[in-house]
Design a protein around this nucleic acid. Structure first.
Lengths: 369, 369
DNA sequence: GTGAAAGCGCTAACAG
DNA sequence: CTGTTAGCGCTTTCAC
């Protein structure tokens, strides 16, 4: 008993295959009584329509693809090793000492984007298929996905610019996050600039720090550039020339934040800046780590802020002031943009910019505050 | 310039479509020189094969589906509201007080399963498509998925038993977690029983508590039943009849744990059990919350343990002793099982049982320990 | 090695 | 309202 097809259902219900198809797609066009027969046959046979056939005939798959960049510490070698179920014990008992699990820190970022995309896709009648980069070239995977979906959502910078060009020739693409792409791609992003501007304004105006230090991420991050632009703008609006201020460079990772903080501490406690504004949360958390170790008090000795709003910022001590990006909403907006694009293929590029939220917490709290 | 097809490529390369197909699927059967021509044409045209057509012709989609149960607090109404991009502000600044974000607590469980499945699927040359239940009936979504994948991974109890029966008639199914299904389904699970047995043994033998109290989840959870069986077994092996011991009933949720703890406290401090062993982490965390509020000290006054190994257990104070399930590995193992099944459709049901890890932490630490 | 031709299961005109 | 009939783009014998 192979998988039943329309033909089987048609035969069973004593109608033509066209009628079966209609019952499933435009039920209103079919007489109630025949509809019943067909439905009964469907149930009896356990018929499930083939998406492949439907896709071929209808030239549309009902699938939206989401491509995410490589997951942090995915270790291919370890994966291979884990590949076989060794005869390992069923239970292992270990004394788990604090901090041993720090390697589990993962950016929840994409999980949330994924969740939002999935939810919205379903609401819109689409299915989501995901591809996650893994080290090397996105090439193969992205191409493969391109062949099986109606449209592709791509997280910024996870795919080389050139491939985007080619791809967009044959399939709609919506870019997620990253730099603004008013030009040639549909794009949903967040208000990086405005968020950092508001945060900086708070620190400068409310807290009276006129010489905050900005900590960059790795060279070439457009998100970081936008954030810094917001930083500069906030300062400019109170008459401070940001280019005269000191800046530091990290790498967007926690470890990098630690290093930057350590360097600062090494210069002497009295030389510490009054406020450190980091390009992302991970670096800020790293600085918190190191300042804590070194006995530098936050916020008493120095104010620290991050950007992104990852979960850990709520759990650090002190809790970290940050700018929360609406990740889940980002995924959702991307799907919406894609659906719009699919409905109107030849309209101008869609650009959506989502609002952010500045979360003021203890890491930037002052006495007078 | 519509999407190029095999015909376009064939014409461009001056060969037949059969040759184009061969170059892409069995390159070894084609002469090098012609292969070159075809590849060149593919590049020139930006050809991407249609997965639908391929699926139809080859009766296999190269897709594995993963169906996850409803996400905790998904609020459909809120989703609708969020549907339109209101003219909301770009930035909002709020003073974020501690604990305000407790609603964001989400079980990371499925995210990890998802990640593992995705990774392994790709390694095996498959693409993963995911479906997440949302409140109501899984029916429609699962059926839809069934039509577009080669096999379906289903998290236990997210789909009614009967539907599983039907489905498995037309498509391979691998159940994830939940009760053992040695019978009629392929299944990957974890060593619930053994894990709880080891944990209980530790508390009984090492810490000398011969009358721990077990806190159940909601009625009818097979996972919980297995865990309790482990609890009973551990006790039995030191000559204690667990059925004579007190048990409590929660609901697997944090709030439920709080309620249970509150009830216990209300009975009087001196009547407190010496150890409380919970069926999952959420309840244990809830108990920690309430004990903390009530001034009951953990582990001094009472020992508390959980089960699952969710992230929050590392961040609570005291950190929670628990049994960590290898979630990511669960997803990976499920995919592997599916691939095996696909390769050998008619072999006996596959059952994989993954080891767990008992993590001893401060919530069960005693002085003598 | 390569080409011709027959489907894979479904949808969508087009008749009736 | 329902049936007939072309394909959709690709894989796969079967010949050559």
């Amino acid at each position: 008993m192979a998988k039943p097809t329309v033909y089987d259902v048609a035969a069973h219900a004593r109608v033509s295959i066209a009628t079966v198809s209609r019952v499933l797609r435009r039920p209103d066009l079919v007489k109630d009584s025949t509809k019943e027969q067909v439905l009964a046959a469907v149930r009896a046979l356990g018929y499930v329509p083939s998406a492949s056939a439907r896709g071929l005939a209808g030239r549309t798959t009902g699938v939206i693809g989401l491509y995410l960049p490589a997951i942090d510490g995915v270790d291919e070698a370890a994966l291979d090793a884990a590949g076989e179920d060794g005869a390992s014990a069923t239970v292992r008992v270990v004394r788990d000492i604090p901090d041993s699990g720090s390697s589990r820190v993962r950016d929840l970022y994409y999980d949330e984007v994924l969740r939002g995309a999935q939810l919205e896709a379903w609401r819109q009648g689409f299915v989501l298929t995901i591809g996650v980069g893994h080290g090397g070239d996105p090439e193969r995977m992205v191409r493969d996905m391109a062949g099986r979906v109606d449209g592709l959502l791509i997280v910024a910078r996870s795919v080389p610019e050139e491939m985007l060009g080619q791809l967009s020739g044959s399939i709609p693409i919506v870019l997620i996050a990253g730099p603004r792409r008013g030009d040639s791609f549909d794009h949903v992003g967040v208000a990086n600039r405005e968020g950092m501007r508001a945060l900086t304004a708070h620190i400068v105006s409310e807290l009276g720090v006129r010489d905050p230090v900005y900590v960059f991420g790795p060279e070439g991050s457009p998100d970081d550039a936008e954030r810094y632009a917001g930083f500069v703008a906030a300062l400019a609006s109170v008459g401070v020339d940001a280019s005269a201020l000191r800046t530091l460079r990290g790498d967007f990772r926690r470890e990098g934040g630690r290093a930057v903080a350590a360097a600062l501490v090494a210069e002497g406690r009295d030389a510490l800046p009054r406020a450190v504004i980091c390009g992302n949360d991970q670096m800020a958390l790293g600085m918190l780590d190191e300042f804590g170790r070194a006995g530098v008090r936050v916020p008493t000795d120095v104010l620290v802020s991050g950007f992104d709003g990852i979960e850990e910022t709520r759990l650090s001590s002190p809790r970290l002031t940050t700018v929360r990006q609406p990740m889940e909403e980002l995924g959702r907006a991307a799907v919406r943009a894609m659906v719009d694009r699919l409905e109107a293929p030849d309209t101008a590029p869609i650009t959506r910019r989502l609002p952010v939220e500045v979360l003021l917490r203890e890491s930037t709290e002052t006495v007078s505050d």
